[in-house]
Design a protein around this nucleic acid. Structure first.
Lengths: 362, 362
DNA sequence: AAATTTCGCGTTATCGAACACACAAATATA
DNA sequence: TATATTTGTGTGTTCGATAACGCGAAATTT
């Protein structure tokens, strides 16, 4: 009577051992380089392993090893900035799936408008014994200290949302900001093949300190530089602050449009497109196209009304999900992890929105 | 000394047994409804299982159960129609991942232009003992026989690519064809806000027998019916055949455009947009927008040249991948499987193409 | 009343990999 | 030469779930 694995010709340590005329213990020692095997036997075993294309049974391995991997996650508070709810959800989903493999996650939530809370959380993580870190390093300067520290103590860390390549993280997960700006440029161009003026706005942001916003802007500008004859398209840029005070905010925009009445489209570089949409709706302006980022409730509302034309989905949920997955690949499955994982630049309209929302739920 | 699972408070059968003052064998009998347990004990155990939120360790289970699940996959030959390479790749990827869980896949490849080969493959599957079927039922009439047969023998089957709801498959995986046509309508509209004429083409297809093409057409037409004032937009339809004979094909299109010189956009309902693009390139026509489906090499070529403006990605690789995944969920993990899984309608342009190609590779 | 079956439950081997332990042979040190 | 240490190898237990097996007691049949 054969076992199913024998029927399926799945090779086990036992089989390797039998062919090599040694015990399973010896094969195991070869597999894990734990020494105490004569060179001759080692080579014989290695060759048979190659020949038989042995692959360890992950279940048996997981069952016996029974190790716990502690992962620290450092992200901004979703209660303060709604955007961070999605990554958190993705992280929790991954945690559920990977619990079986011994992955344990501890969240360290900081205040996205207070760099000190960020430092404090990073300190906490450093003090405790973790096997890996997933971090959204939205404070550039403050991050560097910890990266160099973790590098030295060889604590693997993965970045998401914002890329800081200087200290060679294990991986980065997110979008190509430059290209997403470039894409926004293309979409406006498709809607306005005739010479036009477009506005790039950064809303409520500390732009000099946010490299990804600058990259988006650059991508947008470069699209027109590379794909249209000079002088035909005019790209303006504006930092706008104080979107929470509606009347002040609207007055600012009034002036902007008074000075530049020829504006045909506004590109919002972060998830605050809804603030502009709110303005356009209030002033009943329908001739201005609007592109922004992220499937926030408020944005979706204006997308469905046709005031926002396109949203580029940054896949925040998947960013969190893959972040944990990659750490698990590295820690548990000992896989090689590619240094960068760009998520697709999903173009979302009223008409295809539904399916992305559904996919996120799953 | 505690085991890691005790530290993590992961509940095992042993723990349930201890609390209930019975042996693990009894708990197991309760879990699997194998009888031979007194009603009193059964209730006690069930309650403790609930209370402790017991979840079986998948590794231990997979290790011991050691069952083989045989899945049959019935798809058209990728050598005849390139489109089918992608689903095949997805299926093979899923097979690799699920091999550990005892999933074995047997491919049954038929000729997409010969319904008899389809029937033959379906017969082969029926004759052999399979635990589940994944099928691309591109021949409507011929499929029905087998669906009713499999339904009777309770052989679970999942459809992808083409939906035939009549016989209640375990699930359908694919796109909402109607909505994808609707989306194509929107994109053209965005590019041409002024009254225009658009052409819908079905290339080399037996349209009456292909319900999903009709749905795409309907979606496109409905977009303009619902979003524009009647009489402003004009939607034409044309079946075009014989795209393999370039000169004849081009002559047909010459006549079409001669009769309707006002056409501003062509919507191709299948993956053959490249044949139209080839024509537009040959005739140096640049004022006609073009939207098609699928990331075939030939389409990508024209997308990059700017002759095809948008491609809607039907995610064929993911269709295959999820098809197998869902069957495994049902067979191995005994999960509930939702009757329909719509994949997102990805809008692909030259500018965001790269990331979708990368994602597919992974 | 004896023989047999059913019931209710516990015990134990099994799956494949990991690793501690045991133990003999070979080598080194005294 | 005697003893200590290193090297090479095999054995046995463990992880958690499963299911075959076994056994005493109760229930049923003859």
């Amino acid at each position: 009577m054969k076992t199913p694995n024998e029927e399926r010709k799945i090779v086990r340590i036992k089989d390797i051992a039998a062919k090599a005329n040694v015990s399973t213990g010896t094969v195991d020692r070869v597999l894990h380089n734990r020494g105490r095997v004569s060179e001759e036997v080692k080579q014989r075993v290695l060759q048979i392993i190659q020949e038989f294309e042995y692959e360890p049974n992950i279940h048996a391995r997981a069952l016996v090893s029974n190790r716990i991997y502690r992962i620290a996650v450092i992200i901004p508070d979703p209660a303060i900035d709604d955007y961070w709810q999605a990554p958190k959800t993705g992280i929790e989903k991954a945690e559920k799936e990977l619990k079986q493999y011994g992955i344990t996650i501890t969240l360290f939530i900081f205040n996205s408008s207070d760099a000190n809370t960020f430092k404090q959380m990073a300190n906490n993580v450093t003090a405790d014994a973790f096997d890996g870190v997933l971090i959204a390093p939205i404070f550039y300067r403050e991050s560097l200290t910890y990266f160099s520290l973790w590098k030295r103590t060889s604590l693997p860390f993965i970045l998401f949302n914002t890329h800081i390549p200087d200290y060679e993280p294990l991986s980065y997960i997110g979008q190509d900001s430059y290209q997403s700006g470039y894409l926004a440029g293309k979409l406006f161009h498709f809607g306005h093949p005739e010479p036009s003026t477009f506005l790039i706005t950064h809303i409520d942001e500390d732009v000099p300190n946010s490299s990804h916003l600058i990259k988006k802007e650059q991508g947008f500008v470069d699209y027109y530089a590379q794909n249209t004859t000079p002088g035909t398209y005019n790209i303006l840029t504006a930092d706008v602050k104080g979107s929470t005070n509606q009347s002040v905010f609207h007055t600012q925009l009034d002036e902007l449009l008074k000075t530049n009445p020829e504006i045909k489209g506004i590109f919002v570089t972060n998830s605050r497109a809804h603030t502009i949409a709110d303005y356009l709706a209030a002033r009943q302006i329908t001739h201005i196209h609007l592109i922004g980022y992220d499937l926030l409730e408020k944005n979706l509302n204006f997308l469905n009304k046709g005031i926002i034309n396109f949203l580029i989905n940054q896949n925040p949920m998947r960013q969190g999900y893959y972040g944990i997955q990659l750490l698990a690949d590295y820690l548990v499955f000992k896989k090689e992890v590619s240094a960068i994982k760009y998520l697709p630049l999903d173009i979302i309209t009223k008409e295809n929105l539904h399916y992305y929302i559904e996919a996120e739920k799953y």
